[in-house]
Design a binder for these strands. Structure first.
Lengths: 185, 185
DNA sequence: GTTGACTAATCAATTAGTTGAATATAAGAT
DNA sequence: ATCTTATATTCAACTAATTGATTAGTCAAC
């Protein structure tokens, strides 16, 4: 039940209504934990039943009213307990690795194109991350407590993408070299 | 419905019974796609209904009989079509990144310990991968077609783990340096 | 001779995630 | 006037994944 923790972690930043929470799960938080609005609303309901968050209905002129959710004291304790409990490495479930594993059933060119596609996507993602880094964390040495952890999370995203990018490049090079000799024996 | 593809990819190697398939999903294949035996048996049933695999009951003396599954021609075509269809980057869902994001709600020491824990796990995993690399792919330049893709899949695992390891090390260094100045202003 | 481990598979219950639609208000564009 | 976009939320149906128990035979160890 880790979505609950991701929501609590986000609400620790500041209270959000479901709609705004969901927007965070597309952008920043969504880079390491995604959830649809249906999931988020369902989970918020459950969290409120458990007393880990509480909501306040806020009426707005010229907008539909909204329910703003905030973490309760119990919610924060719950989150702390979870963080203190050691966890396993996140399991991988990667389509591209499955494709690579069975790569011999398609022409070499197919795999190469897919690798180039992924190389480009990882490069783009890294560019986005670098943009955020420059905008929000230009001076990592002098960040306030909270932003320091945001910064390290971002660095995690960058390293993760770098790992995949490095692999794409190496795999393309390897397959390119070895396809020539395979076609021309 | 990506488990189906992972199963077909594995069965392209050679036919397996459910039990042996599941063992592959703990070991090698499990490094990039995990599934429980319940999931595997359920999916095999579905794949057979769709005509993508077919099974053969094999009686064994001194062992329970087993059903050995093999990919049909339609199954292979189905797998090929899937591989040819470009896919998105695998979405991340990482507990440790969520913990880092909300790291300010626990003592600095807690996060450092968890990072060290993960650092050790990634190092261990990399050691396992390097062992496999030495045993099975000592001469990557001269691999037969099939093994070449296995080798690249393994390299993917290594790069992925290296990304996380690099990050753990950097984050530990960063937090260690910045905790000293925070405690001693 | 019983306990534990390995092979081989199935069933039931629950939780989590995806897909698609529906509802309501209001601002801005064509 | 209507159409799209944005805000804000809910419901229903379905697929996928996890958890736990159950059956049943063989083999080796204690």
């Amino acid at each position: 039940m880790a979505l609950a923790h991701a929501i609590l972690a986000t609400l620790m930043d500041r209270p959000y209504c479901g709609y705004d929470l969901r927007k965070r799960f597309e952008g920043s938080v969504g880079f390491f934990w995604q959830a649809s609005f249906q999931q988020i609303y369902r989970e918020l309901k459950k969290l409120e039943e458990q007393g880990l968050v509480h909501s306040e209905a806020i009426a707005q002129e010229s907008r539909p009213g909204k329910n703003v959710f905030a973490v309760t004291a119990e919610g924060e304790a719950f989150l702390q307990t979870w963080i203190e409990t050691p966890c396993e490495m996140a399991p991988l479930r990667d389509d591209l690795q499955v494709k690579m594993f069975a790569g011999f059933v398609v022409p070499r060119e197919t795999i190469l194109m897919e690798l180039q596609h992924h190389q480009a996507m990882h490069q783009e993602r890294i560019a986005v991350y670098h943009q955020i880094e420059q905008n929000a964390f230009a001076n990592p040495e002098q960040l306030p407590e909270k932003d320091l952890f945001r910064y390290l999370t971002l660095r995690g995203g960058i390293q993760y993408e770098m790992g995949w990018l490095t692999w794409c490049e190496a795999a393309i090079a390897f397959l390119t070299q070895h396809s020539a000799s395979a076609i021309d024996p």
